[in-house]
Every structure is written in C-alpha cells, then in structure tokens.
C-alpha cells in the first residue's frame, strides 16, 4: 500500500522531533536500562494507549520497513489495529502479521514466541517506566536511587512477597537488572517473557506520558531479580495450546460457555496460526477445522 497521507510528514512526526527522539534512543542504547528523559509530543491517540511506542516507532521507521503491531500478542486486537492503521496512513509502510518478516514490531504486553533476529527492532509500549515507582512515589528520589544504585528496597519488596505468600508474587512487569547496573521495568509483559529479553534484536522502550525512553542493545545481559534460594520462575499455564498443541507458548485462557468451560490458546496469534498451517493440531482444533 502506498497510500501515505501527504498532509503529514512521513510517520507523522516532524523531522526535528524525530531527531530529538533518536538522540534519546541512542543515549538509551549507550546506557542500557537507563531511563532517558525526552520531550514526548502530544500524539493523536491518548496517553496510555501507546504514545511512547508510537513515537519511538516513528523515529526509527524508514519507508522500506515492514511493520507489525501486537497487543496481548495478537495482531487483531483493537488497539493494535488502530496503531497499525495509523502508520499505514501516515508512513505508507508495508505491514505484516508475520513475526519473521517484520523489521519493526511494536508490542504491548508480549514478546513474540518466535525468536527475533539481528536487524529486527522490538518497540515496547510502557505505561510506568519506573520499576521503583510503587515503592517510592517521588521521581526526584527514584532518579537518585538509580544514580546511586540503591536498590535494596526492590529486594525488600521481593522479601515481603516471600514472607507473606511463600513466593515472589509479581506475575508481570517483573523487574530485571541490566548488565549488572540498572534495575529496569520490562513493561507489563508476563514474567514468562522475561528470559527472552536476552535477544539478537534491538529492544526499545517508549513511555510517552512519563516522557522516558530506554533501550537494550542486542545480546544485553538481562537478569530477573530473585533470591538464590527462591530463584526466578517464568512459569505459565501448565497446558498445551488447544488449537495448535504448542507446549512452549504463553497461553490465554478463554471462557467458552456459561458453565465455565474454558480452553487455552496461544496468545501469539501469528505463532499459533503458523503452527496450525504447518499441520499442528491441539485438543480442540479438530472441531473448528472444517
């Protein structure tokens, strides 16, 4: 589709703004895990709906890119559709639902199941970039804590979890330490996705409302915080996908009838669809097949 709307600059933002964002991205890549303040612009979609991710995508996008957007792992969720349309309209770039074909992938709440490679960019939408925020509400104070590497409080939180529940009770947005230095919020991905963050692709994180960008260069060391005797556990539903039979993918639980019957299906729609196309079948797939 080459239907770029001529009323706007390529990918909506003006070039000055893009340069400002690129500078923030480069700084973020140079200091992995550090939250770089940037002058987030007011976008034509609401704060909290991916304005940070959209600005980062707009700043890195070139006309040759092939763009994919997922929300909750799915390409056809409403907000993913909305953001994909936005870039089709303002940048006229090609879009795809295939993880392997995409050069830029914007995501909310998931990392694709298929391993990403060099040359790909994964852009995360981030609501609250500060991993210490719910322990310390003041931004002035949390910035100081990062600067001085004062992360004791983070472990106090994990300690309290274990003391109370017998296990660390953070299921998503599970904090990580980057290259042994910065404690970072991985955005609200399920902890199942945390181990995937050591990857070959560039990872960029954009928080529009909070005016922060941070980044992970390829192959950056990312360690989920834990205790030696209570190690990090990236668990998921103990169940294969009912559509494609995958045992290694993150699953959504879908209630299918009034009696509370449920099925488990891959949250990554492209992964699930590709597997089914290759002949993989789950327990409940046959009925749908014909």
């Amino acid at each position: 589709m080459d239907g770029q709307d001529q009323a706007y600059n390529f990918a909506y933002l003006d070039e000055q703004t893009k340069r400002m964002i690129r500078r923030a991205i480069l700084k973020g890549l140079a200091v992995p895990g550090y939250q770089v303040p940037f002058a987030s612009r007011e976008m034509p979609m609401p704060y909290g709906w991916g304005t940070g991710g959209v600005q980062v995508s707009a700043a890195v996008m070139v006309p040759e890119d092939r763009f994919k957007v997922i929300d909750q792992g799915a390409d056809d969720t409403t907000n993913a559709v909305s953001i994909r349309k936005f870039f089709e309209k303002t940048a006229g770039v090609a879009v795809t639902e295939r993880t392997g074909e995409a050069t830029v992938i914007q995501t909310r709440h998931r990392i694709p199941e298929e391993e990403l490679g060099e040359g790909q960019v994964l852009v995360y939408q981030v609501p609250i970039p500060e991993p210490l925020r719910f322990l310390e509400p003041s931004e002035v104070e949390t910035r100081k804590m990062h600067a001085l590497e004062e992360y004791g409080l983070m472990h106090v939180k994990l300690y309290e979890d274990i003391a109370r529940h017998g296990a660390i009770s953070t299921a998503y947005a599970y904090p990580v330490k980057v290259e042994g230095r910065y404690v970072m919020d991985p955005s609200p991905i399920p902890k199942f996705d945390n181990p995937k963050m050591e990857m070959a692709a560039v990872q960029l994180f954009g928080a529009g409302r909070e005016q922060r960008i941070y980044a992970l260069p390829p192959y950056t060391k990312v360690v989920s915080l834990d205790f030696e005797d209570h190690p990090f556990d990236p668990s998921k539903a103990d169940h294969p996908c009912d559509l494609c039979g995958a045992e290694d993918s993150y699953l959504d639980e879908v209630i299918v009838d009034d009696a509370g019957g449920r099925m488990f299906v891959c949250s990554d729609t492209d992964y699930c669809g590709t597997r089914q196309a290759n002949g993989h079948r789950g327990a409940l797939a046959a009925e749908d097949a014909a």
């Binding site: 709906w49 296990a167 902890k191 668990s235």
Partner: peptide, 26 residues
C-alpha cells in the same frame, strides 16, 4: 490523566492471566 485512566479499558488479559496462574499456584 484521562489517557492513562481510560487505557485500563484496553485488554489486559495477558497480565491478568499471569496473575491467575500465580494465584492458583499460591
């Protein structure tokens, strides 16, 4: 404020699923 407030209308089922699994385990 309104953007962030209203964004909780967006699907959050992946995170909710993760909490469901955890709470069942606990």
């Amino acid at each position: 404020a309104t953007g962030f407030l209203e964004h909780i209308k967006l699907p959050h089922y992946v995170d909710f699923q993760s909490e469901l699994e955890l709470i069942r385990k606990l």
